[in-house]
Design a protein around this nucleic acid. Sequence first.
DNA 1: TGCTAGTTGAAAATCATTTTCAATTATTCC
DNA 2: GGAATAATTGAAAATGATTTTCAACTAGCA
Lengths: 147, 147
Amino acid sequence: MDYTQSEIERALRKAGYRLTPQRREVISAVMECRRHFTPAELYEKAARRRSGIGLVTVYRTLEMLARLGFICEVHAGGNCRHYLIRPTGEHHHHLICSGCGRVVNFTGCDLTGLERRLRRETSFTISGHLLEFVGQCVDCRRREEKG
Amino acid sequence: MDYTQSEIERALRKAGYRLTPQRREVISAVMECRRHFTPAELYEKAARRRSGIGLVTVYRTLEMLARLGFICEVHAGGNCRHYLIRPTGEHHHHLICSGCGRVVNFTGCDLTGLERRLRRETSFTISGHLLEFVGQCVDCRRREEKG
DNA sequence: TGCTAGTTGAAAATCATTTTCAATTATTCC
DNA sequence: GGAATAATTGAAAATGATTTTCAACTAGCA
Ligand SMILES: [Zn+2]
Ligand SMILES: [Zn+2]
Ligand SMILES: [Zn+2]
Ligand SMILES: [Zn+2]
């Protein structure tokens, strides 16, 4: 399931980072996101609650959260960075709605067979993979059907 | 296999584009690429052969080639666009060497089972997927082992 | 040989992201 | 609680990729 604010804060301290009000605010804003978001979007959201938070700080905090593994980057879509809350631990991927940006996490990608085949055929050492599905959620499909 | 220069030129004309010397030059520069490339890299390469070709034209021509399906974008790596020659027709994916950028195309991703499962579990309409493997080719591995 | 709509490219605009650096502050250690 | 200190902040400037603008040019057609 999802991490709590204080779990994240504890991990942050443990990794040697300082806990500042700005960082708290960014973390809390991240935790309300149901879909992927850009640094700029998160900045707006965080700045609305606590005026004076800087865009640069948002960038830095997001980078830190990604480094600590609490958020991850998604690649499908757009000309700028998109982040996403990451569910606890497990290897997973995303199914993203191209209409509204809603994200469904899923596990069990089962690419080991394909990976083995590629390793055998190419002699590459394979270190990872990027997999994302793109589609349309029920709401977006209905909206489109209506008009 | 790969398209020839004249096949590409014919398709371009057929799609209503004009065949200019600049576009020929870009196409021919693209066709020598064994790995993925950025617009800037291709610009350098093309400009070396025919001085006076503009970066903007390179951007535009690459976009056009992507629209026509002769090149495709790769997502693993970097802060800027990376393109890649696309082998004829078939649905395929890439295995990319993180060391040198070498690319291996492969087909047979076989994600239909997973796709069916996701469709059932989420009721999304799934329109496509993004899959890339990242690894290290034999040469890069040897180079690293040596020191 | 013109005509014309498509194309080019230099320069400027845009936009995301990063760097810089002086002021501020969270944490640690008395 | 009060320094000391190194991390953090954020405004402003820098960077870098990509896009837009627009006047000059030209491929393709008749
Ligand atoms: Zn949707
Ligand atoms: Zn996976
Ligand atoms: Zn390599
Ligand atoms: Zn596939």
